[in-house]
Design a protein around this nucleic acid. Structure first.
Lengths: 164, 164
DNA sequence: CAGAAGTTTCAGGTATAACTGAAACATGAG
DNA sequence: CTCATGTTTCAGTTATACCTGAAACTTCTG
């Protein structure tokens, strides 16, 4: 029995791993992704091998092929997974990008830009005698606009240094 | 005609203001709030006076009393509006907290804590011979854990200085 | 204390996003 | 070219979050 894979230790490994995958999914769901997308991300965090086919994923997570296909496309679009078509392999493989957590920082840039838009548009419509509400938003945005580039730089430096 | 309020300039002010409110709502909707909650936040950004009753809000945004009540409670729970019961006034008033944008930073702390949980739990279930995926998450979290307190300090300093 | 004004609660209706399963489509192997 | 494997698309189902409207409840005022 246990003829293939599961090269690891025992049986209950699976159970805790499933739990972890669900935990990751819950996290990303709060972040606006679908539960299925979160499951995929969680699975790709701990699966072995790290490269998985759509079929692998669908089976491991008990999702339909359609779901997996759709979610993978979306996740690829936002840079949270990478598709790799190996020559000589029928099926494409999917895995987390090495620099996924760096890529996610780009969403911060978008957030800041979005707030900038709100601040500017708000100035035009706010009661002229009351600049305070828009003003405090504007200040917060200004802070991040000036700090963020340097912060990003520090992150990259930190990650580089930390490589052991 | 135009018997009360609308002490401002002209008629088309309203139209652009409505648009702005919707814009704000769209922003917050992406952030996980409901559309109605976003509308309320948008309205409170530009309404005059800044303090509004539930009835004011419901009328301005064409929402039911029930909706407004529910959303205000939720928004108050996460610190994005403040309720003020003025003595001698029947109705409570609601407005944006002065330091709303500072309060929002607390959600960042929660995000970091959430990722720390994932990193630690992940270490326990990841294939032992492959610490890389969890490791890169761990590094990112470590960065923020060490940087965030100082960043918060700088924000507060910046906002204080910027007061004109 | 009685009634009005303000607020909350909640059952029901509605809209919508997510997932499935099957069919269409694409791609590589023989 | 033909078949098998892999992937995408999409109509239909299901689940769920949102909003409404009305009734219950609370809190002020006269």
């Amino acid at each position: 029995m246990s003829d293939r894979a599961d090269a690891g230790a025992g049986h209950s490994e699976d159970a805790t791993r499933v739990k972890y995958v669900a935990q990751v999914a819950a996290y990303w769901e709060r972040g606006g992704l679908t539960y299925a997308a979160g499951l995929i991300l969680g699975h790709l965090m701990v699966c072995e091998p790290a490269d998985q086919t759509q079929a692998d994923i669908a089976e491991a997570l008990d999702l339909s092929a359609g779901s997996v296909s759709t979610q993978l496309r979306q996740l690829e679009a936002i840079g949270m997974i990478e598709r790799f078509r190996a020559p000589g392999q029928r099926a494409a493989r999917y895995h987390l990008p090495q620099d996924m957590w760096l890529k996610i920082l780009n969403t911060e840039r978008d957030r800041i830009a979005g707030l900038r838009t709100l601040a500017d548009a708000g100035r035009a419509v706010a009661p002229t005698e009351r600049p305070d509400r828009i003003g405090s938003l504007d200040k917060m945005v200004s802070f991040w606009e000036s700090e963020w580039p340097e912060t990003e730089r520090r992150i990259q430096e930190f990650l580089r240094k930390e490589r052991s």
